[in-house]
Amino acid sequence: MRKSTTFSFLSPFVNNPHLDSMKEDILYHFNLNTGTLNFPAKFGDVKFVCVGGSPWRMKSFAEYIAGELGLAVPNAEYPNICESTDRYAMYKVGPVLSVSHGMGIPSISIMLHELIKLLYHARCTDVTIVRLGTSGGIGLHPGTVVITKQPMDATFLPRFEQVILGKSVVRSTELDGDLAEELLQCGKDLAEFDTVIANTMCTLDFYEGQARLDGAFCSYTEEDKQNYLAKAYAAGVRNIEMESSVFAAMCKLSNLRAAVVCVTLLDRQKGDQLSSSHDVLHSYQQRPQILVGHYIKKKLNASKKS
């Protein structure tokens, strides 16, 4: 088993000695099995992994990146590698893997465990992984793309806390700062929409956990909500979502170069419910994929020249 004692980005690795004694590894929620599939042949050339909440959005990204990389074929169908399961969807376009992760920390955590093992079994190297998503903004115009500097929990601490064997384990949510700056430069290159680097708050809930007033339950006032969001803003938080903390923690444990790129759909200081039209929201949701698509194309073009 490959191991690393440094925070390098040479290859993703697992840290589980029990895997060595397994004759085959069943990635249950992907419905992929190392005993029946040649992982290095199927996935060994993967250099970029993009993950996002919904299956249709990740299929859309696969189709988009195929066009950007000149790999699109008229009337081509991009098969879902995980089509025999309804948990997640996965699409491969050249060196790019596009995977859905569902909503919330538990769902993305399960997906990441199996994705990291997939990259390990495939013997992939120099992999960059980016979460593409939507979020609620704080003090930003809707449609602004936020590149996460540091994921924070709902108390504005840069950590991910998990209970393992009855004990609380706290892990760092550090992301790659150089990658964030490279993505910001891509936003400047495009000059199509506002792009910023800022902290992101990751919550366990969409309603009360994010200080919304429109859930089934609410024990606080509008003033309480605004005071909380003001504290978040003071902590450098500019958007709120539900996956970034565990994503950052697990990617760091795996030596994966990682970033989170989310578009804001509204300013939470001005309301809780979406009022923009479907077409406007759809255009907003395309912005992270446009930014990351530009980054991938830029990196691949640079590698061809070197």
Results as ranks from 00 to 15, higher is better:
Gln273Lys: 15
Ser54Gly: 02
Val163Gln: 12
Val145Tyr: 00
Gly236Trp: 00
Asn33Val: 07
His121Ala: 10
Cys218Ser: 14
Glu182Phe: 01
Arg57Trp: 01
Ser54Tyr: 00
Gly215Leu: 02
Gly139Glu: 02
Pro79Cys: 11
Gln289Lys: 14
Thr36Lys: 11
Thr34Lys: 03
Phe61Leu: 04
Glu63Lys: 05
Asn38Cys: 06
Asp214Cys: 13
Thr34Phe: 02
Lys297Phe: 00
Met201Pro: 05
Glu182Tyr: 04
Pro288Val: 03
Cys124Ser: 02
Lys252Met: 12
Asn80Asp: 15
Lys42Leu: 01
Val263Cys: 02
Val196Met: 00
Lys231Val: 10
Gly104Glu: 08
Phe193Met: 12
Pro142Ile: 04
Leu184Phe: 14
Phe193Asn: 10
Gln269Thr: 15
Val263Phe: 02
Phe7Trp: 13
Asn199Pro: 03
Ser245Ala: 15
Ala122Thr: 09
Glu77His: 12
Tyr207Trp: 09
Ile110Phe: 06
Gly35Val: 06
Ile116Arg: 14
Leu183Ser: 09
Glu68Ala: 14
Tyr220Asp: 07
Phe217Met: 10
Ser276Ala: 15
Gly215Asp: 05
Val73Cys: 05
Ala234Gln: 15
Asp25Cys: 05
Thr221Ala: 06
Arg131Cys: 01
His278Gly: 13
Ile296Lys: 00
Gly271Met: 12
Val146Arg: 01
Thr144Ala: 02
Ser244Lys: 02
Val260Pro: 08
Glu192Ala: 10
Cys124Ala: 06
Thr203Val: 14
Ser135Cys: 06
Asp214Ala: 05
Phe39Thr: 03
Ala259Ser: 14
Ile65Cys: 05
Ser276Leu: 12
Ser219Phe: 11
Thr128Cys: 04
Ile108Thr: 07
His29Glu: 06
His141Pro: 08
Leu213Gly: 05
Asp272Trp: 11
Thr195Met: 04
Leu71Lys: 11
Val146Phe: 07
Ile129Arg: 00
Pro79Met: 10
Cys186Gln: 06
Val169Cys: 14
His18Met: 10
Val246Cys: 13
Glu182Asn: 10
Pro79Gly: 12
Ser254Tyr: 13
Leu213Ala: 03
Pro288Gln: 01
Gly187Tyr: 01
Asn199Tyr: 00
Leu253Gly: 07
Glu208Gln: 14
Asp189Pro: 06
Glu63Cys: 09
Asp153Phe: 01
Ala122Pro: 04
Asn33Pro: 03
Val146Ile: 07
Cys82Ile: 06
Gln286His: 09
Asp20Lys: 10
Thr6Leu: 14
Asp267Glu: 12
Lys188Cys: 11
Tyr64Glu: 09
Ala230His: 14
Gly44His: 01
Asp189Ile: 05
Leu27Ile: 07
Leu184Cys: 03
